[in-house]
Nucleic acid binder design. Structure first.
Lengths: 340, 340
DNA sequence: CTGAAAGCGCTTACAG
DNA sequence: CTGAAAGCGCTTACAG
C-alpha cells in the first residue's frame, strides 16, 4: 500500500515546521498569507488528506455516531437512517452504520467495536433477541450517550424516540369497527417485543371502548416470519367463529395473512378486513392495496440524532434524557374500506 | 464525556510500564503469568477497551473496508451488503457503510472522508449521476484498492464483480418469445447506465437470433422512477401496433408498468407478458406474481469482498484485477407464463 | 508570524 | 520477563 502524504512530507518540502502546515491547512489567522498559499497549493497538488484517525486521537473527538439496527433491508430502518443521515450531516457528524441481523451476539459485538473510541454516541434499535442489557449499561457507565428508537429497553433511563403505538393500534381497530367488523383478531409479534405489546394494548382498549370482548383465541403471537403469519391466519380461519377483521403487527406479516386469505378465496375487505403497520411501499402494490399505519420515519431519525448530539455536546452536564412519542397516521386503502 | 480507561491508567495502578500492559493484553508469550493475570483481571474489572484509533494509527492498518452504494433502501444493495458483511467478518475486517442517494456529490464526499485513513479499500457501486471519475482515479494513484459491483466504470482497470446482464436479458427475451410474444418492448433505465445497456444488448441479440426486428419505438428509456414507468407503458400501449411482451429493467419499474397495464384492463400475461430484473420480494407479492431474473446477491458481495481483501493483503504486489461475471437465474412466475 | 515540545493512546524494536 | 524510548499523524499551549 502506497505511502499517504502527511503533514511531515509537506513540511519538509516547504522547509517549515509541521505546526505551520497544520495551522495553514486549518486557515488559522496568524499564518502569513504567502505561507498559507504555498501550503494550500502543495497540499492540493499532492492531494493531501488529513489523517482523521490522528486528528480524532489528538482531539479526543470523532464527531461520529454509531447506528445499530436489526436489519438494513427492512424498509423502516433504511428509511429512519435517511433521517439520521440528514440530521447528522447538517450538524457535522458522520455515521457508522451496523446491523445485527436480529442477533444479540452481533449487537454485543457492534456495541463493543464501536465503543473502542470510534463513536461519541449511539442510536440503537434493539435486536429481537436482546434481553440482557449489560452491554448498554456499560456504555452508560462510561458516559457514552445512547438514544433508542422503535425497539427500546424500558429499564434504561435514556432518550427515546418512539411512536404512539397504543394510539395507532386504537385508531386502526376503531377504523375496522367503523367499517362494520364485529370480531377482530390481532396477529402480534413475539411476546417480548414492546412495539407489538403496545399495539396489542391499543387494540384491547379500542375493543373495550366499543363494547367488544377481548378474546384470547383471537390474539396470536408469531415471529416476524411470513410462513408463521400464513399458518396463524389459517388457524384463525379454522376457528368455529372466525374473525371478520384482522390487525397485523407489520406489513411484512400482513402479506402472509393476505396470501392465506386469498388462498381460501376469502374476500378482502368484505369477509375479512385487514389493517397493518408501517406503510411500506409494498402496501400500494399488493392486491388489494393494504391499509396501514404510517410512521414518521424521517422525523424519528432526525429527532433521535438531534437528541443524541445535544447530549454529546452538553458541556454543562444539564442534559436530561427525553422521551418523544411521535404521532402516526392511518393510511386507508382497499383492504379495510368496505363500501356501505 | 467521561474519561475512558487507558493503558496508562492500568499501568499506574499496577505499577508496571504501559509496554507490559500492552503485551499482557495481547497475550504475548514473554509476559510472566502472574503479571498477565493481574493485567487481564484489572482490565476486565475496569472494562478496558483498547482505543482502536490509536492502534490503527500506530499499525497503519484499520482492517476496515469502505462500502459505497447508491441506496441502502434498495433491496438489491441491502442484500449484497449481507454478503459483503459475511465475508468481511470471516476475514477479520470491519465495514464502513455509506450511501450516496444517487448523488455524485455525496459519492465524492464519501470517498474523500473514508480515504482519510479510515479504510484500506473500497467496494463501490456508482451513483446514477457519476460521470467524472477523478475521485476514483485519485484512490488508484494513492494505491488504495477498489472493487466495483453492479454499476462500474469501464474506464478503470480494477476488479469487478458483475452479472451476465447480456445473457440474463437474452434468456428473459427468449422466454417471452417461447411464450408466444411477437412484439416485445424494452423499458430501459437511463442511457448512461451500463447495466441497463447490457440488458438492452441481450434483448436485441435474442430478437435477432429469433428472426425478429429490433424496433426503436419499442425501446424506451426512463429514469428509475415509478411515475416514469407508468407514463412509458401508457405510451407503448398507445402505439398503433402495440407490444404483447414487455421487459422491464428493474422490478421497481415493472410495478409501475403493471399498474398501468391493470389500469387499462390489459390481461397479463395473455395480452402483454412481463419479465423484469432483480427478483425482489415484491415479485412474489404483486398480482400477478412477477417473473424476474434473480441475481446472486450474496455471492456478489462475498466475491467482491474477497477480491478486495486479497488485493489489500497482497504484500508481493502480484495481484492483478479480476473481472468476475456471475450467472443469473430467471424465475418464472404468473406475469409471463402463458398457458398454451 | 513561526518553531520546538509535549501529548492523544497505543506498539515495538532495543537493552537489560 | 520488563522498561525506556521512539514513533504513528496530528494539534496546541508556550516562547520567541
Amino acid at each position: 500500500m502506497a505511502h499517504q502524504v502527511t503533514i511531515k512530507d509537506l513540511a519538509r518540502h516547504l522547509n517549515v515546521s509541521v505546526a505551520t502546515i497544520s495551522r495553514a491547512l486549518r486557515d488559522m489567522p496568524e499564518i502569513k498569507p504567502e505561507t498559507r498559499q504555498a501550503v494550500l497549493q502543495l497540499a492540493k497538488e499532492w492531494d493531501y488528506q488529513p489523517n482523521i484517525l490522528a486528528t480524532s486521537l489528538v482531539k479526543s473527538r470523532t464527531k461520529t455516531i454509531g447506528v445499530i439496527v436489526p436489519d438494513l433491508a427492512y424498509h423502516f430502518f433504511a428509511s429512519v437512517i435517511k433521517g439520521i443521515e440528514a440530521e447528522a450531516i447538517a450538524r457535522g457528524y458522520s455515521l457508522l452504520l451496523t446491523q445485527t441481523s436480529e442477533l444479540y451476539e452481533r449487537e454485543l459485538i457492534n456495541v463493543q467495536n464501536l465503543s473502542r473510541g470510534q463513536v461519541e454516541g449511539f442510536i440503537i434499535s434493539l435486536s429481537q433477541e436482546t434481553v440482557d442489557l449489560d452491554h448498554l449499561k456499560r456504555l452508560q457507565r462510561k458516559g457514552i450517550p445512547l438514544v433508542f428508537f422503535d425497539r427500546d429497553a424500558q429499564e434504561l433511563d435514556v432518550s427515546k424516540v418512539m411512536v404512539d403505538n397504543v394510539g395507532a393500534a386504537y385508531e386502526a381497530t376503531k377504523h375496522l369497527i367503523d367499517n362494520g367488523c364485529k370480531r377482530i383478531a390481532f396477529l402480534a409479534g413475539p411476546q417480548s417485543v414492546t412495539v407489538s405489546n403496545q399495539r396489542l394494548e391499543g387494540y384491547g382498549n379500542a375493543l373495550k371502548d366499543h363494547g367488544m370482548l377481548v378474546e384470547d383465541e383471537l390474539i396470536l403471537h408469531g415471529e416476524y416470519a411470513l410462513s408463521k403469519a400464513v399458518a396463524i391466519t389459517h388457524h384463525l380461519l379454522n376457528l368455529e367463529n372466525r374473525p371478520d377483521g384482522l390487525i397485523v403487527v407489520s406489513d411484512r406479516l400482513a402479506v402472509g395473512a393476505i396470501s392465506a386469505l386469498k388462498a381460501r378465496n376469502i374476500k378482502i375487505p368484505d369477509e375479512v378486513a385487514v389493517v397493518s403497520f408501517n406503510d411500506e411501499p409494498i402496501c400500494t402494490v399488493i392486491t388489494p392495496t393494504l391499509s396501514s399505519v404510517a410512521q414518521p420515519t424521517l422525523d424519528i431519525g432526525r429527532n433521535a440524532t438531534s437528541l443524541l448530539i445535544d447530549e454529546i455536546e452538553d458541556a454543562a452536564g444539564t442534559f436530561k434524557p427525553e422521551i418523544q412519542i411521535l404521532k402516526t397516521q392511518l393510511i386507508v386503502r382497499e383492504s379495510s374500506q368496505r363500501l356501505k
